[in-house]
Computed example of a mutant assay.
Amino acid sequence: MDTRFLGIAELDEAPSVAVVVDVMRAFTVAAWAFAQGAEKIVLAESLDEALALKGRHPDWVALKDGPPAPGFEAVNSPGLMRSIDLGGRTVVHKTTAGTVGALAVKDASLVLCAGFVVAEATARLLRTYKSDSVTFVVTGEEGQADEDLACAQYIARRATEAATDAAEFLRRAAESRAAAELAEGVRQGVHPDDVALCLEVDRFSFAMVATVEGSLMVLRPRAAPSPADEELV
């Protein structure tokens, strides 16, 4: 499998298969939202679009980076997300990196959104899909965020070597600038457990697939193929 690791600005054309990685914290939060019962997550292009969608669908839950704000019921924190009951609801998600990266590759034939919490499920889906080329979108810090790059490299390795040890990749993520800023309270809308929750490997058994539905980019959970299913493909 040929792999590329690119920042959002480096994407010059739609890849065939894209894995968009945002460990701290967009796609860790998205995974927690599904674990809390969300049916789907709409990836908004702007805060204004998120609020407009919320206005048209009052029962949807709007979520953003940073501190709480009028019109938004939730913030981009896994520690806070785990206490919200989202049973059957739709979440509208807008962040500064993760959602932007997913929207940048919306024309790919397969778009997966990932963090460490869904690493194995994502790797299994890649193995089943059997693409010759996969582009990993490293969303943070203009493609330089080491927590995202480490996770992307780990998933890429897991897609071909299932026994890959996570320890070194997790160490890099734990020592990243994003982890330090979260731990030190530099970023707002943070729970003390956020870093630890972002570094839980394979917390969830589903992958997350984004597809264009009408005019919207929609993220949904997808059960990971079993090893037996992989052998049949």
Rank of each mutant, 00 (worst) to 15 (best):
D2S: 13
D2M: 08
D2P: 00
R4I: 00
A9D: 12
E10F: 03
E10I: 03
E10S: 15
A18G: 06
V19T: 06
V20G: 04
V21K: 09
M24G: 04
M24W: 06
A26R: 02
A26N: 05
F27E: 09
F27G: 07
V29S: 07
A31Y: 03
A31Q: 12
W32V: 15
W32D: 03
F34K: 01
A38Q: 08
A38L: 12
E39G: 14
V42R: 10
A44P: 09
E45K: 12
S46I: 13
S46Y: 11
L51H: 02
A52P: 00
K54V: 02
H57S: 12
H57L: 07
D59M: 07
W60I: 06
V61G: 01
V61R: 14
A62R: 07
A62D: 13
L63Y: 08
K64P: 00
K64C: 13
D65Q: 10
G66Y: 09
P70C: 02
F72M: 12
E73D: 14
S77A: 11
M81R: 03
S83R: 14
L86S: 09
G88C: 12
V91R: 04
H93C: 06
H93I: 00
T96E: 11
T99P: 12
V100W: 00
G101R: 02
A102R: 04
A102N: 03
A104F: 01
V105H: 07
V105Q: 14
K106S: 15
A108D: 07
A108K: 11
V111W: 12
L112A: 11
L112G: 08
G115K: 08
E120K: 04
A121I: 05
A121P: 06
A121Y: 02
R124Q: 03
Y129C: 10
K130L: 13
S131P: 10
V134I: 15
V134Q: 04
F136G: 11
V137G: 07
E141T: 14
E142L: 12
G143L: 12
G143R: 13
Q144Y: 03
D146Q: 15
D146I: 15
D148F: 05
A150W: 01
C151I: 06
Y154S: 05
A156H: 03
A163G: 13
T164L: 08
T164F: 01
A167E: 13
F169A: 13
L170Q: 06
R171T: 13
R172W: 01
A174I: 02
A174C: 02
S176E: 03
R177L: 15
R177D: 14
A178I: 04
E181W: 10
E181K: 14
L182H: 14
L182G: 00
A183M: 07
G185M: 13
R187L: 15
R187H: 12
V190R: 13
H191K: 03
H191Y: 05
H191P: 09
P192D: 06
D193A: 15
D194R: 09
V195E: 07
C198I: 04
E200W: 01
V201C: 01
R203S: 02
R203K: 15
F204N: 02
F206A: 05
F206N: 06
F206K: 03
A207L: 05
A207S: 10
A207H: 08
M208Y: 05
V209L: 14
V209I: 15
V209A: 11
V209F: 01
T211G: 01
G214L: 10
L216D: 14
L216N: 07
A224M: 10
P225S: 10
A228Y: 08
A228N: 04
D229P: 00
D229H: 09
